[in-house]
C-alpha cells in the first residue's frame, strides 16, 4: 500500500508546485484553479492510503516472497450477471436525449435510473447473482 500512496502524494506535490509557479506567472485564473484541483486529487486519496498503509499488516500482494496459497480463501463477492447496469445505461441515455429532444424524456430516463439503482442495491445486499 505504501508505493500506491507515495505515487499519489508525489503527483500531488508536483501539481502543487506547477500550480504555484503557473498561478504567479500567468494572467488568467482557470489554469491555476484546475491545477490546484489536480493537486488535491493527488493529496486526498494519497494521504488516505498513506494513513491506511501504516495501520495494516503487509498484504500478500505487497510481500515479494508471498506464495499463491497465501491468499487462498475468499477474495470477495463478485456478481455473476446483472441486468441493472444495462437498465441504468438506458436511463442515462434517455436523460441525455432529454437535453436534445424535449424535457418529457426525463420521465422514462429518471424512472429507469431509479429502478436500476434500487434493483442494483437490492442485488448487492443479496450478494451478487441470485
Amino acid at each position: 500500500m505504501k508505493v500506491e500512496a507515495k505515487i499519489l502524494l508525489i503527483l500531488g506535490l508536483f501539481f502543487g508546485i506547477v500550480a504555484a509557479v503557473y498561478w504567479r506567472w500567468s494572467v488568467e485564473n482557470a489554469g491555476g484553479v484546475m491545477l490546484v484541483a489536480a493537486m488535491l486529487l493527488g493529496f486526498l486519496p494519497g494521504s488516505y492510503y498513506w494513513w491506511w498503509s501504516r495501520r495494516m499488516r503487509t498484504r500478500p500482494e505487497d510481500d515479494p516472497t508471498a506464495t499463491p496459497a497465501q491468499s487462498a480463501g475468499v477474495v470477495g463477492a463478485f456478481p455473476g450477471t446483472s441486468i441493472w447496469p444495462f437498465t441504468m445505461g438506458m436511463g442515462a441515455f434517455f436523460v441525455v436525449l432529454a437535453l436534445v429532444f424535449g424535457i418529457w424524456l426525463l420521465v422514462p430516463g429518471i424512472a429507469l435510473v431509479t429502478w436500476a439503482l434500487l434493483g442494483g442495491i437490492a442485488e448487492g445486499r443479496r450478494g451478487g447473482r441470485v
Binding site: 475468499v74 477474495v75 470477495g76 463477492a77 463478485f78 456478481p79 451478487g128 447473482r129
Partner: peptide, 12 residues
C-alpha cells in the same frame, strides 16, 4: 447463489 470466489490455490 452467491458467486464467491475461492482464490486459485496450489499449482496443479
Amino acid at each position: 447463489m452467491t458467486d464467491v470466489l475461492e482464490h486459485p490455490v496450489a499449482v496443479g
